[in-house]
Amino acid sequence: MTTAQQIITIAMAVLATALTRFLPFIIFPAGKEAPKFIKYLGKVLPAAVFGFLVVYCLKNVDILSGSHGIPELIAVAVVAVLHLWKRQMLLSILGGTVVYMLLIQLVF
């Protein structure tokens, strides 16, 4: 990617993010009720997006070759177990990442 393309990519991210923040204030001036389907999406969409993002992060894992996704599977399990046990976000992230780094550097 050239520098100009990088700037455009970052600008797109800024534009999309600012849009999600400013839009409600532009279309629903104080006192006006938001449409029902917007409220509905506000409730149900985040859960699906978080699921999508987990898949997105693991999109390049190849189950058929290389390490067959085993280090990813173990590290995700470590994150989940740590989190269900201690419920400390930073600990779960740190623990899982360290385990993953050790696995791919030393084992696989």
């Binding site: 797109m12 999600t20 917007i38 969409l45 999508f52």
Partner: peptide, 24 residues
């Protein structure tokens, strides 16, 4: 750029609903 825009829009869609709660 189009995919970047759409993807970031979707990731941040939750802001729309924070905004609705913060209007007042």
């Amino acid at each position: 750029p189009v995919q970047t825009f759409l993807m970031i829009l979707m990731i941040n869609a939750r802001h729309l609903f924070y905004g609705i709660s913060l209007l007042e």
